[in-house]
Design a binder for these strands. Structure first.
Lengths: 227, 227
DNA sequence: CGTGCAGTTGAGCAAATTCAACGCTTGTGG
DNA sequence: CCACAAGCGTTGAATTTGCTCAACTGCACG
């Protein structure tokens, strides 16, 4: 069983070629009894890759996960960030259509897909849960679609509100992801994201405590942008 | 029971205010026994509206359906076109998050949602079918997301290929929808769609037999744009 | 034959991208 | 402890892409 994790290479380009570096997140494919136990993933470690068999469902315990695809021209599109409590990895087919990586060091619980499916076949409640999980993911994807037809300001505002919803109660938002991650999620460039954030700061809508620590000062402005 | 259908108003603007005109597509909400029988919908007739209870599942028998939302600023975003054979109207919640309209005159079969859900609770096969239908819809939505981060040429090429896949065998594609529909699906303006189509015609990639009759002359170019 | 709608085309403009330089923080090695 | 490189983020200037506004064409229908 080969142990290898794939992470982003360190070049300053924005296209995503990949490079093999360290120890393995895929041990469990040979050790199905690990299902249900939390597994640690390092920053940028791959959880699964596009085209791999979709044998597990995943639940984020701590950290954050990005779901993404790399286009032929090297651009990357992130379809979702998953934060603690979120389940991900549900796929219609046998194979993953997307890749998943840990944004920062993360702890993730794995459950064998076949176990869940078998349980669902027996138990209507499980089937129902699985279905509503998929349906929620569908709504998420549709909301993301609506994001991508808006202006840069609107997208960034929507992103900030979405993140603050995912971290309720925190007055200072601690974003786990980089500007590049945000840009690839919003379909913008890092420069545009950066400029838009400073613009929002200049208008006292937000406060950039540090580049990844943001306070939402004026939610009504953000809500209006989001509308 | 009030009979009324809602259609687009006739103004030249691109924002979508609405105006009541003619006879009712919602008879079935009072006549559940109609479930399973095909119902006719006129061009632009509303099938269901955002916020209405999601009491039915729908299957297109003939014609075409657009699923859309109208933003606060009046712009419309179409999330999907459904052609004969497609099932639509599956929603995670009790209410429709989107609206559905017939693109052209269409025939659509309705099935009571509660019947399907009850069947799914008893029968694992039905539950499985329902789940995979939802999952397919999810993949569709994700594919659409990937569309919206591409250039205008790439979006139009992807649209043409998608449509040709939905109408296999036809050498001349007969598009049921207007330029405005296409634009709202691709997140572009009608002008950009029009210009892009003429550009593709000038490069002999497609042939515009008539504005809604298109022949794909050079699929490899389209595929390259799509990649 | 006019009217209305759908689609096309053109010119100017605005928004976001591209390319480039720079600043700040962090980690590493002398 | 300082020097320096690497990563990440910000800022500026030029460019490109698609949008806006406007005019015009072709077609269908009365």
């Amino acid at each position: 069983m080969q142990a290898q994790t794939i992470v982003q290479d360190g070049r300053s380009t924005r296209s995503y070629r990949r490079q093999v570096i360290c120890a393995n997140p895929h041990l469990m494919f040979g050790a199905p009894d690990l299902a249900g136990l939390p597994m640690p993933f390092e920053r940028n470690a791959e959880i699964y890759g596009e085209g791999e068999p979709a044998d597990y469902l995943y639940k984020v315990m701590s950290g954050a996960v990005r779901i993404y695809k790399v286009l032929t021209d090297g651009r990357r599109q992130i379809s979702a960030f998953h934060l603690p409590g979120d389940v991900f990895g549900i796929e219609p087919g046998k194979q993953h259509a997307w890749s998943a990586e840990a944004v920062g060091n993360s702890s993730i619980v794995l459950v064998k897909r076949s176990l869940v499916l078998r349980a669902a076949a027996r138990d209507g409640e499980v089937a129902q849960a699985l279905w509503s999980l998929t349906a929620r993911e569908l709504r998420r994807a549709q909301d993301h679609t609506m994001l991508l037809v808006k202006s840069a300001q609107e997208r960034v505002a929507a992103f900030l509100l979405e993140m603050s919803q995912l971290m309720p109660g925190a007055s200072i938002m601690e974003l786990p992801m980089s500007r590049q991650d945000i840009a690839d999620y919003l379909g913008l460039t890092i420069e545009t994201v950066s400029r838009t954030l400073t613009l929002l700061e200049e208008t006292a809508t937000i406060e950039l405590v540090a580049s990844r620590r943001i306070v939402l000062r004026n939610r009504s402005v953000l809500n209006r942008l989001n509308s």
